[in-house]
């Protein structure tokens, strides 16, 4: 989950979600940074609209109550 949080953190801070940045954040958090996973994450995120994904949560969470 660290990888995702790292990506979301960069996204919220308006920073590029690239290898270097993700690695930097993970290391700052004392987390081991697996290069292959970072690469996979970045590739996968290219097709993902983070804002939209987050917005969907909001809807889903609001609906049930």
């Amino acid at each position: 989950m660290e990888y995702i949080y790292a990506a979301m953190l960069l996204h919220t801070a308006n920073q590029d979600i690239n290898e270097e940045n993700v690695k930097k954040v993970l290391e700052a958090a004392g987390s081991e940074a697996d290069e292959a996973r970072i690469k996979a994450l970045i590739a996968a995120l290219e097709d993902v609209d983070i804002e939209e994904a987050i917005a969907k949560t909001a809807v889903a969470a609001a609906a049930p109550a």
Partner: peptide, 14 residues
């Protein structure tokens, strides 16, 4: 839950 939502999108790709 936001993290999970993003993760689910991501894992859907890879």
């Amino acid at each position: 839950s936001q993290m999970l939502a993003v993760a689910s999108e991501v894992s859907g790709k890879d």
